[in-house]
Nucleic acid binder design. Structure first.
Length: 451
RNA sequence: GCCCUCAUCGUCUAGAGGUUAGGACAUGGGACUUUCAAUCCCAGAACAGGAGUUCAAUUCUCCUUGAGGGUACCA
């Protein structure tokens, strides 16, 4: 054993589709582990499948990672620009007797029922000029290969279950297995944290490291994220990609926080955490191996928690993007902050502060609270409000109470119709605060429209 | 079929031989109240099943069951 390598981890996605939340969590754990250990986090693009390559996916991927705040220290490195390295590595294995050229046609392979039959394994032939070939690994027939997964312990596989996997494809591109082993070695990756769909492949990778005479990195396979009812999390079952959640109005840090807790916990009862707290508490030992279900209800709650933790200036700036009346923004932000669950709700919830509603849009509330007495009461309260000199919440409340007493009605029977007349909706912050924010003239104007 | 992995409330989890099995989301109830939230309080809710090991198993071992993954010139 050599001395401890410096910590270096990577996120190595394929640019073939959207950044799935499972992939995002893999990136998060790599990121947290690097930050927690003072290590390096790099980004590697595994674009060795030319059929599935998608340039838009690559752009989205980079955008989504940045949006999540997972800044990488090095990269992105593209495997497609390192073809020569993989080719040489594969040849090297042929030279050393660990791999061989295979000339089998696709047609022949398709006739095989139980996988590749090692037809070319003992041919010991080099390809003729222009002859098509792949390079296959010569898997050992006897014995077993084992590795120590950091969260699952020792995993052992009989070598007879391992096939002669392709290293270099017909198109001269490497397979995932070759490319990732070669890159993880040359890029000095110390720990490979990846999805657990790779567990079965890891013995093959170990064998490759051995064949090259390289030391293998540590492996840590992360459990999958499932849909609430079980099964794969897909767009069909709701939001599944980072982009989906962004569009839904989630805060990036709420998503990161929530995802980090799917399979990991800090060991105490903390759940809502800052990035710094997560980094400080993070360790691979506390990741557990169980597949987890994605509970969007808890994400919603967490998003609300993070919105409430935001500095007021954040909401104020968001409001200023929508409205020109900047003076009101601070007050509106303060009133809305405790009841916001999604950032996307901000514009609908703040609208009546800045624009006079045309009509009552909330039919349910209207049916529930509006009576034939309401117009009369509202006129009276408008009269009372008009008398107020200092338009404060206390004085506004007093005006309402007075009208209630005079008519012997409950506050709700007056306040709710008044809210509907002023806001057009039946729910929101305290009425006194809303009125104070709108100002005396605007309130009276809105109330006087009722007939 | 073969191989591999996993298994605590509905969900996310704490627990690492002896606990009234703790917390959070969700659910139900209550307080507050002009509404909706937020906030606070209370309640119900779990160790998949079966064998072992042990004075003692949720915890260790094995089996069963269930779930997931692999078995590609995809990653």
């Amino acid at each position: 054993m050599s001395e401890a390598k410096p910590i270096k981890v990577r996120f190595a996605p394929s640019p073939t589709g959207y950044l799935h939340v499972g992939g995002a969590r893999t990136a998060i754990y790599n990121y947290l582990f690097a930050k927690a250990t003072g290590g390096t986090f790099y980004l590697r693009i595994e674009d060795t499948d030319r059929k599935r390559y998608n340039e838009q996916a690559l752009n989205d991927l980079l955008r989504d990672l940045k949006w999540l705040g997972l800044d990488w220290d090095e990269g992105p490195f593209f495997q497609s620009s390192r073809l020569e390295i993989y080719g040489k590595a594969a040849e090297q294995l042929v030279e050393s007797g660990h791999a061989y050229y295979c000339f089998c046609t696709e047609e022949r392979l398709q006739t095989l029922e139980h996988g590749y039959d090692r037809h070319c394994r003992d041919l010991n032939r080099r390809p003729a000029a222009d002859e098509k070939f792949v390079i296959r690994f010569k898997s050992p027939v006897d014995g077993a290969t084992k590795f120590n997964d950091l969260i699952r312990g020792e995993i052992e596989t009989p070598n007879k279950d391992l096939d002669d996997l392709v290293l270099l494809k017909r198109d001269k591109f490497p397979t995932y297995h070759l490319a990732s082993v070669v890159d993880d070695h040359y890029m000095q990756t110390s720990h490979v944290l990846r999805g657990d769909e790779w567990i079965s492949s890891t013995p093959k990778h170990i064998l490759l490291y051995n064949a090259f005479g390289w030391e293998a990195p540590f492996f840590c396979h992360l459990p999958v994220i499932l849909a609430p009812g079980g099964g794969k999390l897909s767009k069909r079952k709701g939001a599944a990609s980072v982009g989906d959640f962004r569009d839904l109005g989630y805060l990036p840090h709420a998503l990161v926080n929530f995802l980090s807790l799917l399979g990991w916990s800090p060991g105490d009862d903390r759940e809502v955490m800052s990035l710094e707290e997560m980094i400080k508490a993070f360790s691979l030992e506390r990741i557990h191996p169980k597949a987890v279900a994605f509970d969007e209800k808890k994400l919603e709650w967490m998003n609300g928690m993070h919105i409430r933790l935001l500095p007021d200036s954040f909401l104020i700036d968001e409001l200023k993007k929508i409205y020109s009346d900047e003076n009101k923004c601070a007050k509106v932000a303060e009133l809305l902050k405790p009841r916001l669950k999604f950032m996307t709700e901000l514009s609908a919830m703040s609208k009546y502060f800045f624009e006079r509603p045309e009509k009552c849009e909330d039919e349910k509330a209207y049916a529930k609270y509006w009576t034939e007495q309401s117009p009369k009461h509202i006129k009276m309260v408008a009269d009372e409000l008009e008398k107020i000199e200092e338009f404060s919440t206390a004085n506004i409340e007093a005006a309402f109470m007075k009208v209630c007493e005079e008519n012997e009605i409950k506050l709700g029977a007056l306040a709710q119709p008044a809210r509907l007349a002023i806001c057009g909706v039946g729910a929101g912050p305290g009425l006194w605060e809303i009125l104070e924010c709108l100002g005396k003239d605007e309130c009276i104007l809105r109330l006087r429209r009722v007939n």
